[in-house]
Design a protein around this nucleic acid. Structure first.
Ligand code: SF4
Ligand code: SF4
Lengths: 144, 144
DNA sequence: CTTATTTAAGACAAATTTATCCTAAATAAA
DNA sequence: TTTATTTAGGATAAATTTGTCTTAAATAAG
C-alpha cells in the first residue's frame, strides 16, 4: 500500500505532533527509537517532510523537528503521504495503464475507483492530531 | 497498490479467460504483446499462476496457457492477487506493525480497516469472467 | 522413436527502494 | 567570534523487485 518510507514518515509525524503539543522538539535519533525505524533513513524522510512543509526543522543546539502549534490541527494524513509517495495513490491505481481515463479505462476501473476514492477521502479527512490523541490515550501504538 | 508482477498477472489472466472462452490456448509471446508487458517476466508470472492453480499450462506443440472452461466463472481477482502478491494486501496494511491486532493497533487501524475490507471484498467478489466480458464489449481495455 | 515445440527453472542483470555514512551548512550558546 | 550541536545533502551500499537469457523437461506430432 504505502512505501516503507511513507510508513516511517506517518509514524514520525504522529510522534512529532505529540511532542509539539508539549512544546518540545525532537531529533531523528529519538524519533527512530520511538517508531522503531532505521535512524539515517528516517532522517532522510524527515528532510522530505520539511521540504514539503509538513514539519519544520530547527538547526543548532536545542534544535530538532517540530510543527507550528497553530498548524497542528490542520495537517492530514494525505499531506505526509503526498510528501513522500507523491500522489500516485490518489490517481494512479489498479492495473496502472499509461494513459487511462473514464473513456479508456482498464478492466478493473469501475471496481477500483470506489476503493481509491474511499482511501483518498480517508487520508484527506484524518488529521494527525486525531491520531496522536489516540496514542496519548493508549488506544493505539507506534511500535510492536 | 499491487506489484508490477501482479498487474501483469491480472491482465494476463483476463486475456487467457477471453481466449479460453473461444477454446484457444495462448503462449507468453502473444500474452505479452496483448497486455504490453515484458515477455520473459510475464512467463515467470504465468508459472506462478500455474503453481497456484489459477491457470493451466500445456506443453508441446499446440500447447500454451488456458483455463478449464467450467472453472472460468469461479476465478476471482483475489485468486490471482494471492498467487502473486500473497495475502499481505488482505491482512497486512497501514503502518505495517510487526504484530498488530485489534487490541494493539497502530494509529491508523480504525480508519484503515474499512478500506482494506472493502478492497478485500471487491477482490473476492469480482470474477475474471466479468472483467473479460467488459473487454469483449469494448467497455474497457488491456493496454494504452 | 525421433523431432519440433512449448512451458519450467535457474542463473544472471538492471532498476528501484531501503538503508548507511561522511561532510557541509546553519545556528545558538558561551 | 569560537565552538558545540544539529539538520541538510551527497556518495555509497544492501536488499528487493523487475526483467533477461540460457538450458532442461515435457509433450504432441510425424
Ligand atoms: S483505468 Fe481506472 S482503475 Fe485502471 S489504472 Fe486507470 S484510473 Fe486506475
Ligand atoms: S491498520 Fe490495523 S492491521 Fe493494519 S498495520 Fe495498523 S494495526 Fe495492523
Amino acid at each position: 500500500m504505502f512505501s516503507k518510507a511513507c510508513e516511517y514518515g506517518i509514524k514520525a509525524t504522529i510522534f512529532i505532533v505529540l511532542k509539539s503539543h508539549e512544546g518540545k522538539r525532537v531529533n531523528p535519533k529519538e524519533i527512530a527509537k520511538e517508531i522503531d525505524s532505521p535512524e539515517a533513513f528516517t532522517a532522510k524522510i524527515l528532510q522530505a517532510l520539511v521540504r514539503h512543509e509538513v514539519i519544520v526543522s530547527v538547526k543548532g543546539t536545542y534544535g530538532g523537528f517540530e510543527i507550528d502549534k497553530d498548524k497542528i490541527s490542520t495537517i492530514k494524513l494525505a499531506d505526509a503521504v503526498r510528501a513522500i509517495d507523491g500522489d500516485s495513490i490518489f490517481n494512479g491505481c489498479g492495473l496502472g495503464l499509461k494513459s487511462c481515463d473514464e473513456d479508456h479505462p482498464c478492466p478493473v476501473h469501475d471496481k477500483f475507483k470506489d476503493i481509491r476514492d474511499a482511501l483518498k477521502n480517508m487520508l484527506e479527512q484524518t488529521s494527525f492530531e486525531e491520531l496522536a490523541f489516540n496514542i496519548k490515550s493508549g488506544a493505539s501504538f507506534l511500535k510492536l
